[in-house]
Amino acid sequence: MIIRENKIQVDDYFLKNVLEVEGEKEVFEDALFFDLEHYVYRKPICIGVFGCCYYDKKKNEINVTQYMIENKKESLDILDLAKKYFQNMYTKEKKKYIVTFSGNNDFTVINYLLEKNNVDYVIEDYYKHIDLQREYENVIGKNIGLKNLEKLFDIERESNVISGSNLAKTFCKVMKDSDYMNRMPQEKKDRILLYNEQDVVSLFQIYVDWNKVVNEELIQKEKEEAKKTVYKSKEEIHNQ
């Protein structure tokens, strides 16, 4: 198992820009930012990378934890590590929310695998889910992918985007060949971990800069709708 922990200093943010949830601005301080890389073939097969981070207000930094499997046996071990991580974050760090992007897919995978492997833990019994894709759709009225949302927030990635299908192929090989990870170049392992890390860090950045970008999008949407209303009114007058 590859276990990777990293601390990332946070740039200044303003509370007025932070996404408000349940009437509260400080929810992000009690939240985990969560993303999985996984392999699904008809049904969930394994978690390839578990990635999660949280904000440490005292140190003004993000603490990132990642687990990546190196063989089939560890596809079970990663579930135990995920359970212990969530338990520790809930009891010791007092986290109560999980922030994702289109997280229903990740929850479907991890919940299925936890139940299948008799790991007694239900994440939703302890954490409330905040899905940034759904939050954006509720406000703007259209669907959007994470990479396009990152562009709106001027988030630049250090690594190239890796497609979900390529990641799935990688972890398919890991599950079938116990020596595959030993032959994989370290550069590729680092690239996968960095990609996942940037996914969870992006969630935090989007969350704390939410109003700065989404409010502008909302204003633009309202202007476009106002133009359509004016055009429709003129057309109705013309047809009378």
Rank of each mutant, 00 (worst) to 15 (best):
residue 118 N to C: 12
residue 126 Y to I: 12
residue 129 H to F: 07
residue 108 T to Y: 15
residue 135 E to W: 02
residue 133 Q to K: 14
residue 99 V to R: 01
residue 109 V to K: 05
residue 130 I to C: 05
residue 107 F to D: 03
residue 117 N to K: 15
residue 102 S to N: 15
residue 105 N to A: 15
residue 129 H to L: 13
residue 99 V to F: 09
residue 105 N to W: 13
residue 116 K to F: 13
residue 126 Y to F: 15
residue 98 I to F: 06
residue 109 V to P: 00
residue 132 L to S: 03
residue 123 I to G: 03
residue 103 G to A: 10
residue 99 V to S: 07
residue 117 N to A: 02
residue 117 N to L: 07
residue 129 H to P: 01
residue 134 R to W: 06
residue 112 Y to D: 10
residue 120 D to Y: 11
residue 100 T to Q: 01
residue 125 D to T: 04
residue 123 I to P: 00
residue 103 G to T: 09
residue 135 E to N: 09
residue 129 H to K: 12
residue 131 D to L: 05
residue 101 F to E: 02
residue 117 N to Q: 14
residue 132 L to D: 02
residue 121 Y to L: 02
residue 129 H to E: 10
residue 118 N to Y: 13
residue 98 I to C: 02
residue 102 S to A: 14
residue 125 D to P: 01
residue 101 F to S: 07
residue 109 V to Y: 01
residue 115 E to V: 01
residue 104 N to M: 10
residue 125 D to H: 09
residue 117 N to C: 12
residue 117 N to T: 13
residue 108 T to D: 15
residue 124 E to K: 14
residue 104 N to S: 14
residue 98 I to L: 09
residue 115 E to I: 02
residue 111 N to G: 10
residue 105 N to Y: 14
residue 132 L to M: 08
residue 120 D to G: 04
residue 135 E to K: 14
residue 112 Y to I: 07
residue 125 D to M: 11
residue 106 D to V: 11
residue 131 D to C: 04
residue 114 L to A: 03
residue 102 S to W: 09
residue 99 V to K: 01
residue 104 N to Y: 11
residue 119 V to P: 00
residue 114 L to S: 06
residue 104 N to C: 01
residue 106 D to S: 07
residue 111 N to Q: 14
residue 115 E to W: 03
residue 116 K to V: 07
residue 105 N to R: 10
residue 115 E to D: 13
residue 106 D to E: 01
residue 99 V to H: 02
residue 135 E to Q: 13
residue 109 V to L: 07
residue 98 I to R: 05
residue 123 I to H: 02
residue 109 V to G: 03
residue 133 Q to T: 01
residue 105 N to K: 15
residue 134 R to F: 07
residue 118 N to K: 14
residue 137 E to P: 00
residue 118 N to E: 11
residue 134 R to N: 06
residue 125 D to I: 06
residue 126 Y to G: 05
residue 115 E to Y: 10
residue 129 H to M: 12
residue 135 E to G: 02
residue 126 Y to E: 11
residue 105 N to L: 13
residue 134 R to S: 06
residue 128 K to E: 10
residue 120 D to R: 11
residue 117 N to S: 08
residue 137 E to Y: 08
residue 129 H to Y: 09
residue 115 E to N: 13
residue 102 S to H: 09
residue 122 V to T: 05
residue 118 N to Q: 08
residue 102 S to C: 11
residue 126 Y to H: 15
residue 115 E to C: 00
residue 120 D to A: 09
residue 111 N to R: 12
residue 106 D to C: 11
